[in-house]
């Protein structure tokens, strides 16, 4: 094949290679710009990703929901409809296998973790359970959060998540009213 044709194909490939990360950014920015922000009570733990570095894994307090539907299978998609409680934290209103038309509530597309037939509770994993941090800080974060939760019951640790059309972008994790990075910087 002529060099110029190979070059033209390469330009197309190169554009696709650029388009994918750009599209990732645009998607996330759109949610951050026009999504609704929710506070999710959370408890971070600290694992690793081989390519993307250290992150804290966030377990959410509202990641279970009581339901009598026993047919849920692991990794099924579940639409979780949200509302807020009296303290302003996110709360599950109801769950569904499909999008509920005309619902005024925001929803997120989560994955089923497992269903307990004993207490009829469905455990789910939300698509915003990773918060990437500088490697030195991530190691310390879990310990700091544990200490905060031990000494205080009122001050909640929560995640700020922007939600739009079933997708969520985790914007920050708040410890005692302060963004986690600032908090860890201050309490070195």
């Amino acid at each position: 094949m002529k060099t110029i044709y190979i070059f033209i194909i390469f330009i197309v490939v190169g554009l696709v290679q650029l388009f994918i990360p750009v599209n990732m950014i645009l998607n996330q920015e759109a949610i951050l710009k026009s999504g609704t922000v929710y506070k999710f009570k959370t408890r971070p733990v600290d694992p690793n990703d081989p390519f993307k570095g250290k992150y804290i894994n966030l377990n959410y307090q509202i990641d279970t929901f009581e339901t009598l539907d026993t047919l849920w299978q692991r990794y099924d998609e579940v639409y979780v409809y949200l509302t807020v409680d009296s303290l302003g934290f996110a709360k599950i209103k109801n769950i569904s296998r499909d999008v509920i038309l005309n619902s005024k509530n925001d929803y997120i597309k989560a994955k089923v973790y497992w269903y307990s037939k004993v207490d009829h509770k469905l455990s789910m994993s939300f698509p915003f359970n990773r918060y990437y941090m500088e490697e030195s800080k991530a190691e310390n974060a879990e310990k700091v959060v544990r200490d905060i939760q031990r000494k205080s019951t009122t001050s909640a640790t929560y995640a700020l998540v922007y939600i739009k059309n079933g997708q969520g972008v985790l914007n920050d994790v708040i410890l005692e009213g302060m963004p986690i990075n600032d908090y860890l910087e201050k309490h070195k």
Partner: peptide, 24 residues
């Protein structure tokens, strides 16, 4: 290519699973 996608995931805390990342 891998590094660029990994960093974008990191900046926006995208928790996409390893398999989707490897496939792309």
């Amino acid at each position: 290519v891998g590094a660029s996608m990994a960093l974008i995931s990191q900046i926006y805390n995208i928790p996409d699973d390893l398999s989707a990342y490897l496939l792309t």
